[in-house]
């Protein structure tokens, strides 16, 4: 086989391989692990985070505006301390509220952010004070059962 023919074929092979990698990088995957994106990080404390996981999305109006960067247990307050990384260029007011919500009935849990009316914006290291915990299915069911029992007792 001629040397230049071999060169051309290997060139085509390498180019196709590199094109495949680029295709996989651009069309198939998304660079979501850019956690060091220079946004601001805020802290929210919850009584119960349910099944919230690291890197879970933080959504506002259903749009992803940040990620859960760290989850810790605060041994002084006996609460879960969740560090939220908000993407650059998105500002929320100081009295924003954070809820732990579930996508679908049994889906992944995420943090829902809702902005408040305060003029001042959240800064790096601030704490979101208005939070509501995750809905735990067992607690919900037991509460419902107790209510039902109380109702039937009252009606008798």
């Amino acid at each position: 086989m001629n040397r230049s023919t071999i060169d051309i074929w290997v060139g085509i092979f390498v180019a196709a391989g590199i094109a495949a990698v680029i295709f996989l990088a651009l069309r198939v995957s998304s660079p979501s692990s850019f956690t060091s994106d220079d946004g601001i990080s805020v802290i929210a404390r919850f009584d119960n985070i349910g099944g919230l996981k690291l890197n879970a999305p933080v959504k506002s109006s259903g749009v992803v505006v940040g990620r859960v960067a760290d989850i810790r247990f605060d041994p002084k307050r006996y609460q879960a301390e969740v560090t939220i990384l908000l993407f650059k260029g998105i500002d929320f007011s100081k009295d924003s509220s954070a809820d732990i919500l579930t996508a679908g009935l049994l889906g992944e849990q995420y943090v829902g952010l809702e902005t408040g009316g305060d003029e001042a914006m959240l800064k790096n290291g601030d704490t979101i004070s208005i939070t509501s915990s995750a809905l735990v299915l067992e607690q919900l069911i037991s509460k419902f059962m107790l209510d039902k029992a109380a109702e039937t007792k009252a009606s008798q």
């Binding site: 069309r27 995957s29 998304s30």
Partner: peptide, 19 residues
């Protein structure tokens, strides 16, 4: 098809590790 794929496949975690 493509949107779901792109939303759930991570560049670092999946592509680089496979490489």
């Amino acid at each position: 098809f493509w949107g779901q794929m792109q939303a759930n496949v991570d560049f670092h975690y999946d592509l680089v590790n496979g490489g």
